[in-house]
Amino acid sequence: MNSIWIAIALGCYAISSGCFFFARERDRSRLAGWGAAMLAIGALANAIDLIARGFQAGNLPVATFGDSLPFLAILVAIIGLILIVRRGLPAIGIFVALVATVASAAACVFGTRGRLVLPATLRSGWLPVHVTLAFLGYALFLLAAGVSVLYLTYEARLKAKRPLPAPGERVPSLEALDRINYHLLGWGFVMLSLAIVSGAIWADATWGRFWSWEPQESWSLVTWILYAALLESRLTVGWRGRRAAALTIAVFTVLAGSFLGLSLMHPGHHAGNFD
C-alpha cells in the first residue's frame, strides 16, 4: 500500500488537533479557522488515498479492519466539518480532529502493505452501499457521543455556577447541543437501519440466507435496539438534555466496543475472513 497520502492526511489531522486544542484556551477563532482548514486538507489527502486504493482494488478499499479505518476517518472529518462550519460548533473540532488522527494513525500501522486484492465474494455492487451506510452510521453515532461529552461538560459548569471559564470563549448553548445530538442520532439510526437491511439483502444474494446470527450481525441488532430505545425515550418520556447525553455516550461505548472487539478478535466476514 502506498501510504504517502494517508500519512499526509495523518499529519494534517494532527496539526488540526493542535489548532483546536489551543483555540479552546482563548477566543482565538482564527486558530479554530486554521484547525478547520487543516481538517479539510486532511480530508482531501484522505480522499486521494481512498481513490488511489479504490482503483487498485477495483472497489471500496475496505477489505480488512486496518484498510477500513481511513474510510471512517474521512466520514468523521466531513461530518465534523459540517458541524463546525454549518452548525457553528468549533468546540467539537478537537474531538473530530483527534478521532481522525487516531483512525488514520491506526490505518498507517494496521493497513495492508502492497497490492489490495478483494476476495471474490466482496467484488459486488453491494459492498460500497452496505459499508458506506454502516460507516456513516458509526461516524454519526461517534459524533453524537462527542457532542454529548461537550454537553455534559458545559452542563456541569452551569450547574456548578462556574459558567464563564474563559472570557470570550464561544460556548454553544445547551439547547443547540441537545438538538444537534438528536439530529445526529436520528440520521445515524437511519443509516444503521439501512446498513442492516442492505447487508441482509447482500447476504441473501451471496450465501442464500438473509441472517446467519454471525456476531457482527447480532451486535448490530443489539445496538440498533439500544439506539431505537434512546430515540423513543426522548419522544415519549422526554429524556433529553443531560440524561440523553449520558445515554448517547453509554450506547456508543457498546457500539464501539463491539466493533473494535469483533474486528480485532473475532473471525467472520466482517473481520476480513471470507472463506
Binding site: 459558567p163 464563564l164 439547547e175
Partner: peptide
C-alpha cells in the same frame, strides 16, 4: 470588553448559554 459585569447582563448571558434562541 468581554463578559457580563452586571447582575442583569449575567442573567441574560446565562439564558443564552442554556437556550439557543
Amino acid at each position: 470588553g468581554h463578559g457580563a459585569v452586571s447582575v442583569g447582563s449575567v442573567a441574560v448571558a446565562l439564558a443564552t448559554q442554556i437556550f439557543d434562541t
